[in-house]
């Protein structure tokens, strides 16, 4: 059984008069618990692929099965629910809400899902504890270091217990040492069974994944998982 099953995915963007083929005939299968690094030069379609996997974007052609369910045909609200319950995002620029405290940022997905406040408080303090952020709970993002911000973002991505974590260059805004800490954290999650898909153009970080996808010009040029 596979967690993610893409077949014949196409995605083109119109840029003025010219068409940009961001994804071309992508076929991809990822099983639960996998650790996949997506690599390739800038503009090769890595982010487009990740957005598609996260249901933030729709393909122009092809089908996408998530947990054996065709999610390309879902309504926007059904897709929102899938994002809420099954997918966690980690972004290069953290995307924390600046006016909210670390705890409130972590609480956001729980709040959007309509979970009762008592349960939320419990899960938020557990998540903050897991990522060593308990004493930073009431700090706002601007009062946190880059590494701490990304840890808040990871806590937020995992607080709903998703099946898959999609991270687009999560270390892109961090120095090497902090970046390694963050990757170690993500790998720890993967060790607990969460499927991890990381976009990176850092060769060493990419090499740590069990499976590497290399994209070139919108297509998968190499997939170590296929042998």
């Amino acid at each position: 059984m596979s967690l993610i099953e893409l077949s014949g995915i196409e995605r083109t963007f119109l840029l003025g008069d010219s068409e940009v083929h961001a994804l071309r005939s992508i076929n991809l299968s990822i099983t639960p618990g996998e650790y996949v690094a997506v690599m390739g030069p800038s503009g090769s379609g890595k982010s487009t692929l990740l957005n598609l996997l996260g249901l933030l974007d729709r393909p122009d052609a092809g089908t996408y099965h998530l947990e054996d369910r065709d999610v390309t045909t879902l309504t926007p609200d059904e897709q929102a629910r899938v994002r809420s319950e099954r997918i966690g995002f980690v972004f290069q620029s953290f995307h924390l809400v600046p006016r909210l405290t670390a705890a409130a940022n972590v609480e956001l997905p729980l709040m959007l899902a309509g979970i009762v406040p008592a349960e939320r408080t419990k899960r938020v303090s557990q998540a903050l504890k897991d990522y060593g952020l308990t004493d930073r709970a009431h700090h706002r993002p601007e009062q946190l270091s880059g590494g701490q911000r990304q840890r808040v973002a990871i806590a937020r991505a995992t607080v709903m217990h998703p099946a898959v974590i999609l991270a687009d260059e999560p270390t892109g805004n961090l120095d090497r040492a902090t970046g390694e800490d963050v990757v170690t954290l993500l790998e720890g999650l993967n060790a607990q069974g969460v499927t991890l898909i990381v976009v990176t153009h850092d060769q060493t970080l990419g090499a740590r994944a069990r499976r590497q996808l290399v994209m070139e010009d919108g297509a998968i040029a190499r997939d170590s998982g296929k042998g």
Partner: peptide, 16 residues
């Protein structure tokens, strides 16, 4: 705008 995008990524519906 970025915050709205984030809320969508976190599972907020258009109605929310």
């Amino acid at each position: 705008t970025a915050e709205i995008g984030l809320l969508k990524a976190l599972g907020a519906t258009a109605a929310t």
